[in-house]
Design a protein around this nucleic acid. Structure first.
Lengths: 205, 205
DNA sequence: CACATTTAATAACGACTATTACATAACTGC
DNA sequence: GCAGTTATGTAATAGTCGTTATTAAATGTG
């Protein structure tokens, strides 16, 4: 299926690596801000190669997003799923969000999906669907972990997994925006403890 | 102070109205996506007039943001401050966010500050500061209302106004992103009641 | 070796980019 | 009405935009 055809001149660059390079350009400069020159230079190829392999700019953009969603692991999500204790897991998630948002290398535009892709849902067809898919997928992964904890008895039976998952994820967007505005990590750190409690607590129904 | 100088040919357009028009272009197309042609056409003026009054593109962008922050009232904030009952006020805030985020006219890129301006903090000098100012100002306005309720005795003495204000504002960003991804208003509406409770409740310290 | 096939590199395409010279028009003060 | 001042409209600048036609290079197969 994925075996290379033997005929013709072999490709001299790694398609996936080029796609990663393109993703970083879009991430750094945004869709409109990224020129084909920026892209070809970062990808290390000439424009005809780009067009023959990835299609036009919009098509390359879509492929870059799809590749990002399929392969790039989300640090906060990983932290949340790998920590045993649920309270520590929620805390680790928030910490990872802060780390991710404030220690962002150089000029990357915050979160690729939230800060870059979200701006093109009105102009580049297909991005809206990909963004929605990413959000709903994150909701589900977070809720799944809560469900597991409920089965283990670490969370009460009536714990609203899905609703708290969405709560957690929405809080994330606020932190990402604040980081983008240059608000210090320390000031955001100060709210984490209370937010962890809010997320995990069970109110009398 | 602000009186018009009498010498020379009088200006034939309203500077403020032109700035509003420019804001909408940036809001719709983003900073990079907005061309000077887009701007001059929407503003109803020729480029030399634009350059003489507003400076270059970046300068116009900054002025548009400043004007927006100074003059455009935020519907959710207004709803929050005008509603008497604090619980209804929080609810009204969230409802207004949903209304604002999902009923956004045509192609506006979500929230002007959160979805448009936030993307240029790395490339257009001054935008980061303005974005931060806007966020901190929102935090303060929300917290101020909570403080008033505490004085009235409608909220307990130990109610953490500032922290809940930030919580409220951060939740807003999540809703705005979801709306941008095309997630239905109804599904977001379903979480509002519980979130209002979370924001207003007082946990045992 | 020549052939078919695929990719690479050069260079160009017209359209559009942000910005500005220049000449003209409209006003105030004399 | 004339000088001084400011704004407007036309048109141009040099450069970059996304995209592609064309030619050369590199491979497997006959």
């Amino acid at each position: 299926m994925t075996q290379k055809k033997k005929v013709g001149r072999p490709r001299s660059f790694d398609v996936d690596a080029a796609l990663v390079a393109a993703t970083h350009v879009f991430w750094e400069k945004g869709y409109d801000g990224a020129s084909m020159k920026d892209l070809t230079e970062a990808m290390g190829i000439n424009s005809p190669s780009l067009y023959s392999v990835f299609g036009d700019k919009k098509s390359l953009y879509i492929k870059a997003i799809e590749r990002y969603l399929a392969n790039d692991s989300c640090a906060p999500m990983d932290a949340f799923e790998s920590e045993d204790n649920i309270e520590k897991a929620v805390r680790a998630f928030m910490e990872a969000v802060l780390e991710y948002a404030t220690q962002q290398p150089e000029g990357l535009r915050g979160c690729f999906m939230a800060n870059c892709v979200s701006t093109t849902v009105g102009t580049v067809g297909g991005t809206k669907e990909l963004l929605q898919e990413a959000i709903l997928s994150a909701d589900e992964r977070l809720a799944a972990r809560f469900d597991v904890e409920k089965e283990k008895g670490h969370l009460p039976e009536n714990f609203p997994s899905k609703e708290r998952a969405r709560l957690m994820f929405d809080l994330r967007q606020g932190l990402v925006l604040r980081a983008r505005a240059g608000i210090s990590r320390e000031s955001m750190e100060a709210d984490l403890d209370i937010r962890v409690c809010l997320i995990l607590q069970t109110v009398a129904s």
